[in-house]
């Protein structure tokens, strides 16, 4: 497989939901990224930052307001014929967050998993379908005896595996995993992450892994994008992001994760962001993070920062790393003390 080929190219994607007559909720406000074949991109952000909307636009649940999504060099949302559209739907699947609402309570596991087979390979006989479902169940670590049971008889982790088997049934190339572990117990989360990794190796899958914090994504992502209020703040290789986070928001997110190690918790200096996320209907001027940023400067409310490649493969959207902006007169920190304690990180 050609590993470096780009499978998914998202360019300047926007999705605005109209709210009332004049205003709109800018859930996704111009983001661009690429995902290579066989790669996992982690998409991280707090609730309401638009990360799930990105996943849903890519999988065609929503139509974008503007921008383009290219999959295998083909536009996903353009007008295409029925067969090609069906094929595109097949190759992109989704795993959902809530293991309780993502499975139809009136269907057996067999019916749930075989739905994709019925839609995409109508030629398949009943026997063949059943043996395929049993194979899939085994693949995700469930027993084929489970096939005739109903979703409510399973635990959260088992349901999530059924959801994964349903997505895999149509042999997709690309899977959007929308917070697949957020609703699971701690001891089960690792099971699901390991399963997704195993399946990626076996089936050469490409993932977009959406998460609300930076703790688990590390184990599965090759690169990570951090989103805030509809925009990507920083995107780079996972190792780099954890070792050398550049954007103040990334640093705050990293620092906010409680570490399960008492000694480290006692000794470390935590960055605690003040205030709340502003409304995506009424965005702040200039940089959208400036209202909570510990390093905010005068210039931040004036100009919106550009998404720049600061180092190779490390893109940041912050004035601190833009020499042109930093040479301006108003590029001085507004809060002195905060910065001094902050820069020790």
């Amino acid at each position: 497989m050609k590993k470096n080929e780009e499978l998914l190219v998202v360019s300047d994607l926007k999705k605005h939901f109209p709210v009332g007559k004049k205003s709109s909720l800018k859930a996704v406000d111009g983001i661009s990224f690429t995902i290579k074949k066989g790669e996992t991109l982690g998409l991280v952000g707090e609730s309401g930052c638009g990360k799930s909307t990105v996943g849903r636009v890519i999988t065609q649940i929503y139509q974008p307001s503007s921008g383009e999504v290219l999959f295998n060099n083909d536009s996903v949302h353009g007008r295409i014929s029925g067969a090609a559209k069906k094929e595109k739907k097949r190759s992109m699947q989704m795993i959902f967050q809530d293991p309780y609402s993502s499975l139809n309570p009136r269907m057996t596991v067999m019916e749930i998993i075989s739905e994709g087979l019925i839609i995409h390979s109508p030629g398949l006989g009943r026997k063949e379908r059943e043996s395929k479902v049993n194979e899939l169940l085994e693949l995700v670590g469930l027993n084929k005896k489970h096939a005739q049971r109903f979703p409510h008889e399973f635990s959260g982790g088992q349901r999530q595996r059924i959801g994964i088997a349903r997505a895999l049934a149509v042999e997709p190339e690309f899977i959007v995993a929308d917070e697949p572990i957020a609703a699971l117990d701690v001891s089960i989360q690792a099971q699901i992450v390991n399963l997704l990794k195993k399946l990626q190796d076996e089936k050469e899958l490409t993932y977009l892994f959406i998460a609300h914090d930076l703790s688990m994504v590390k184990y599965i992502s090759d690169r990570i994008a951090v989103m805030y209020l509809g925009k990507i703040m920083e995107i780079t290789e996972s190792e780099t992001l954890y070792e050398k986070p550049l954007h103040p928001y990334t640093r705050a997110l990293l620092s906010a994760i409680p570490i399960p190690d008492p000694d480290m918790e006692r000794s470390r200096e935590q960055i605690i962001l003040t205030g709340d996320v502003p409304s995506p209907i009424d965005l702040p001027s200039g940089c959208r993070f400036r209202t909570r940023c510990p390093n905010v400067m005068g210039v931040c409310s004036e100009i919106e920062p550009q998404f720049l490649e600061v180092e190779s493969n490390h893109f940041v959207s912050c004035h601190l790393y833009d020499e042109q902006v930093m040479s301006r007169e108003d590029a001085v920190p507004l809060y002195d003390e905060k910065v001094s304690t902050y820069q020790t990180v």
Partner: peptide, 22 residues
């Protein structure tokens, strides 16, 4: 709005299928 309906949509299910099965 439930995720199982969205899941069926991403699988490419027809409207008839959505209505009668889900």
């Amino acid at each position: 709005g439930q995720e199982f309906v969205l899941a069926s949509q991403t699988l490419g299910a027809s409207n008839a299928r959505l209505i009668w099965k889900h």
